[in-house]
Design a protein around this nucleic acid. Structure first.
Lengths: 226, 226
DNA sequence: GCATCAAGTTACAATACCGTTACAATTTAA
DNA sequence: TTAAATTGTAACGGTATTGTAACTTGATGC
């Protein structure tokens, strides 16, 4: 899948240029000039990188940056060339990298590539995204449309296994083995049924007609998107 | 173990300043003005980071950089402010990061810390900032909103581990292992519970409804911001 | 339609986890 | 050495979670 980049800058010119160049370089790009909107997009779209102008009107870049870092999205901060202290501020609020304006496009691209290579290739997938569902394996959290849903340990284990096998059904037997470490089970699949039911109550709008956590009759359960 | 930094610059002044400042910041430092010598030191001493002036006489920085990258040592490139193309050259030969001369020392330090934290090399991350919480690892102090909170040694160890895993829950088992060096523990998690309780009394406004030091049922404790 | 089995729901009891308090043991500072 | 601070232990209560059972709903094949 193509890497997703979100551009946050109030200058329309810069938005346009970056959008064009980065889209041309093969990235999926979205852009906005407003901080609050950026946060919303970040939560729903979950970009791989955010390029953020620190001198943003409204919700300022300095405020926005740590929020993005909390979502474990790397941030490249843009700022004016002469303000030396802004570099430091930018790095202190947790930005992954810093580029000063007026910036060299090639430099920016190289820095983007570097981050993507690291976050994408380096460590084992920390989070799994299935449409609006985001499963953060490290933080043990589930997000739906950017909204956190609090799950109990067993519930999360189920979601984790289903997410790792997204779109394909997982049988109750496999779930029993993986979640409950049950090599042989005298009991039936009671626990699976009950926990699936509990899960649907939490993550589905209408638990009776699930949209994400589906069942394939005779095969098992699967996590998917509408 | 302290992180090791090798400084490669032909200007004696810069060598001296960097040596002094970085040694003061708690790093183990070596420096040289010659490219071939730098390579030799890198092979034998195996620094965690090399700070490399790209405009080096003899074996040039541009040639040296990829050799260091081959040794999987991250490189921060130093270069003159006005030469824009040097940034690109620097990044293209595999440098991890770039700082232009005349550089701001604080910026350089932050970039060093960032790389070290990522590569997991030496544990030289001096301070960890989580919103209004600042954990000073070197001085063993905790600040909340700039106000110092005095902690006992064990309390600080707990905060340190939680800070290093900011926003992600750490289980009692891990805490026991890391704080009390308990490979196997006959006792239960009593000490963890009690110490967390004591910590909350110190750092929370309302210990019964904590805002920073939270617990996620079944997962563990985490340090976060409201 | 009906028997059968998979799947969903509900309620309840057992359990695991967490927070607090008090007190003893230990270490540190004066 | 004494006093204070720190740390470990035990016990209790409250609450979230989990397993179990009974029952209902829905799908499938004859």
């Amino acid at each position: 899948m193509r890497a997703k980049i979100l551009i946050v800058d109030d200058e329309q010119d810069i938005q346009d240029i970056l959008c064009f160049v980065l889209a041309d370089a093969g990235y999926a790009v979205q852009s906005t000039g407003r901080g609050d909107e950026a946060l919303q997009i970040a939560r729903q779209w979950v970009p791989d990188i955010v390029i953020l102008d620190i001198g943003l009107p409204g919700l300022s870049g300095l405020e926005l940056c740590p929020l993005l870092v909390d979502l474990s999205i790397p941030v490249i901060v843009l700022s004016s060339h002469d303000r030396d202290d802004q570099i430091i501020e930018g790095l202190e609020v947790g930005a992954e990298d810093y580029v000063s304006k007026p910036f060299n496009l090639k430099e920016l691209q190289l820095r983007i590539e570097k981050i993507i290579r690291r976050t994408g290739g380096g460590e084992a997938a920390q989070r799994i995204t299935i449409d609006v569902l985001v499963v953060d394996l490290k933080r043990q959290q589930l997000f739906i449309d950017g909204q956190e849903v609090s799950l109990t340990p067993t519930e999360f284990k189920i979601i984790e296994i289903l997410a790792k096998n997204a779109h394909t059904p997982v049988s109750s037997e496999v779930l029993l083995r993986q979640v409950w470490n049950a090599e042989e089970w005298i009991q039936g699949t009671e626990m699976v049924k009950v926990n699936i039911s509990r899960l649907r109550k939490k993550i589905e709008v209408d638990p009776a007609n699930p949209r994400y956590l589906l069942n394939r009759w005779g095969y098992g359960y699967l996590l998917t998107a509408p």
